[in-house]
């Protein structure tokens, strides 16, 4: 998974379709009840889903790696390396072997989680906030506002994520004193700038479906302001598809970060990430495949966890599948 756009477009047809149950023919009481019962029903459904439990456990482990990596590395430091050990294979002292510089691959793989997870979370948050906001405005107000915003979205949508990411990152100056947060920020920006459009499209279409629901019309008739209607009625009732797509995209962004880092454009050393580790390992694929193998496994499992989580959430939020 190297392109969240792909995951989004794959998810989109289903999600959009399944949203028809929010038809405007619902009686007002049923509709105002909707958010609470929809979410609590979904939560009940989720707790009994094996896929959800499996992905939640995996994600829990990745979060430990992100915030408390030393718990899992028994206090070893990822930057303490010994050139004498260069490219030694897995053993009982170094489960995943040593890389070219004689650094412990296991320790680095654990520490590598942080950059990947942070990029995934922040890029998703960025895209969700910007995309969600634009989508709500375009969908709710319609008319010329919608026309303008939709054209702007089209323009950004015309640039495939990976190509855009390459452009943004290749024009950034590469600094010598790269630190984790500036590097992560740079990649988040590159992915977020192009990733928000798919979120906009999803949000816009689900807002349009809610906009003319009876309970919104009723609220308007009672004199509620647009801001209040959006906050109280429209957003809670149209959020479900966005959340599903965002969860799946999170995995996609992690993959995209790794791809960019692999191209030498994403995170730069000394920041450790799975992508940079794979990039480092690339020349030695024949002699030391384990250098590539372990970070690749962690990366894939992380992406998989978020995709599975998204799938579970979608199933829980979609009454038609019950």
């Amino acid at each position: 998974m190297s392109d969240p756009n792909a995951s989004v477009s794959a998810a989109a047809p289903e999600t959009v379709e399944t949203e028809t149950y929010r038809g405007s023919s619902l009686p007002p009481e049923a509709s105002t009840e909707k958010p609470r019962s929809l979410w609590s029903d979904a939560w009940r459904e989720l707790r009994s889903s094996k896929i959800f439990i499996l992905s939640a456990i995996l994600i829990f482990f990745f979060l430990i790696m992100t915030f408390f990596p030393n718990l899992l590395t028994f206090g070893k430091d990822p930057y303490t390396c010994d050139l004498k050990l260069s490219r030694q294979g897995p053993s009982s002292t170094a489960w995943f072997g040593y890389d070219n510089n004689g650094c412990d691959v296991y320790t680095r793989t654990i520490y590598g989680a942080k950059a990947s997870i942070l990029v995934g979370v922040f890029a998703t948050a960025f895209a969700m906030l910007v995309g969600g906001f634009v989508g709500v405005i375009a969908g709710f107000f319609g008319g010329w506002v919608d026309s303008i915003l939709s054209r702007v979205t089209d323009i950004f949508f015309g640039i495939p994520l990976l190509l855009g990411g390459i452009l943004v990152l290749s024009s950034f100056p590469s600094t010598d004193n790269a630190n984790l947060y500036s590097e992560v920020g740079k990649v988040v920006l590159a992915l977020g700038i192009l990733g928000w459009t798919s979120m906009t499209r999803i949000m816009r279409s689900s807002v349009i479906q809610v906009r003319n629901a009876d309970f919104v019309i009723a609220a308007r008739a009672l004199g509620a302001t647009s801001g209040r209607i959006i906050r109280k009625h429209v957003v809670p009732n149209s959020l479900a598809p966005l959340i599903v797509v965002a969860t799946i995209s999170l995995g996609g962004y992690i993959g995209a970060e790794a791809t960019l880092s692999f191209l030498g454009l994403g995170l730069q050393p000394p920041v450790i990430s799975w992508g940079t580790m794979i990039n480092d390992a690339q020349p030695y694929i024949r002699v030391a495949p384990f250098m590539l193998f372990f970070p690749a496994i962690f990366l894939s499992v992380a992406v998989l966890s978020f995709i599975m989580l998204g799938d579970a959430v979608r199933e829980a939020l979609d009454p038609k599948l019950r």
Binding site: M1, A258, I278, R286, P289, S300, L304
Partner: peptide, 22 residues
């Protein structure tokens, strides 16, 4: 398909190159 979706293309590329090419 879920596994394929989860593994980034460049990893699949290396795996394929290593397995079927080498």
């Amino acid at each position: 398909t879920l596994i394929v979706i989860s593994i980034p293309v460049f990893v699949i590329g290396f795996l394929a190159q290593f397995t079927f090419g080498i």
